[in-house]
């Protein structure tokens, strides 16, 4: 059974599915089937009205004061509960077009964003999409209609990788355009200066947004498992190349990468930003679970 579940979210299995919508549904339905219903519910902050308790409602949402006054069970309902605006930010820079396994980081990110969009819209929240490299390439505003999912998926399927990475600059730009508080989900390999990235993320927080970061990396980027004299040529900048013996620098490389990740993670933690490092070899459910954890 465990094997079946693992296969269900395995990027290698997902890679064989051609339709992005299908992939998103595959992932989301799979995740939802494994969770308790109540864990999928979120909170809101603005009280709107009472309604009578119905079986299946959470006990903790019963208004006990109303019960004392009226001797009847009422449930509190909030204004924003079904109107969360989620901004999905997907990095489509050249560096995302790299794979050592079945999926490139870009393909992995697309499935992840599609799955999140599907999940968000399924919960009748609003989801928008922004793709970027060193600039904003495309932007779809958040909407909560079911039919919007198709539009998002078409946009995603039309995307290709291009350009350099400048996450910090793009985040600042996106943050400036958000008028209402919401949730910002960033999917990127974050191959940029960590401080610059954190500065952009901090701006989202200052404007009252919740921020969820999916740091997507290929397994080989994390471990540099190569051998033999190798000439490394940068995907985004062909002028950047270096010849090295991977075995000789492997330990130092891992330290550098870990340091980069630690900087990002601690910076996120400092500003209450959810940070999730995902390898393209990581099953997609784990990424979604981290989202659902946030929702909880």
């Amino acid at each position: 059974m465990a094997t079946t579940e693992q296969s269900y979210f395995d990027p290698a299995v997902l890679a064989r599915l051609s339709n992005l919508h299908l992939k998103a549904r595959w992932v989301v339905e799979g995740v939802m089937a494994g969770l308790h219903r109540s864990r999928a519910k979120g909170f809101s902050v603005e009280f709107e009205q009472h309604r009578e308790y119905a079986p299946g409602d959470e006990i903790r949402r019963i208004d006990w004061k109303a019960l004392g006054k009226l001797d009847r069970y009422f449930i509190k309902e909030y204004e924003d509960e079904s109107n969360l605006k989620t901004h999905l930010l997907l990095d489509v820079s050249g560096s995302m077009d790299y794979a050592s396994g079945a999926l490139t980081k870009f393909q992995y990110g697309c499935i992840l964003v599609a799955s999140l969009a599907y999940l968000i819209l399924r919960q009748q929240d609003a989801a928008g999409l922004t793709t970027f490299s060193d600039r904003i390439d495309a932007q779809l505003p958040p909407k909560a209609t079911r039919g919007y999912m198709v539009e998002l998926l078409q946009r995603l399927e039309a995307e290709t990788t291009r350009g350099d990475t400048d996450v910090g600059k793009v985040l600042l730009e996106v943050a400036g355009g958000i008028r209402r508080r919401g949730l910002v989900v960033l999917v990127s390999d974050l191959l940029d200066d960590a401080e610059s990235v954190l500065q952009g993320l901090r701006l989202f927080r200052f404007k009252g947004n919740d921020v969820l970061v999916f740091h997507v990396m290929d397994e080989t980027e994390l471990t540099l498992p190569f051998s033999g004299n190798t000439r490394f040529e940068d995907i985004e900048d062909p002028g950047l190349r270096v010849t090295a013996d991977p075995k000789a620098i492997q330990a130092e490389y891992r330290r550098v990468v870990t340091n980069h990740i630690d900087t990002l993670r601690s910076g996120c933690h400092q500003y209450a930003i959810d940070y999730q490092l995902v390898s393209t070899a990581t099953p997609l459910d784990q990424a979604l679970v981290s989202y659902l954890s946030w929702r909880k």
């Binding site: 995302m96 790299y98 004299n229 000439r231 040529e233 995907i235 000789a248 490389y253």
Partner: peptide, 23 residues
């Protein structure tokens, strides 16, 4: 051995470069 090297397109060359310089 030095002459026999492979080529690899890689996204995180900046980290390779830093590591190479350090070691």
């Amino acid at each position: 051995n030095r002459r026999q090297q492979k080529r690899l397109r890689f996204p995180a060359v900046r980290f390779v470069l830093i590591s190479q310089r350090r070691v």
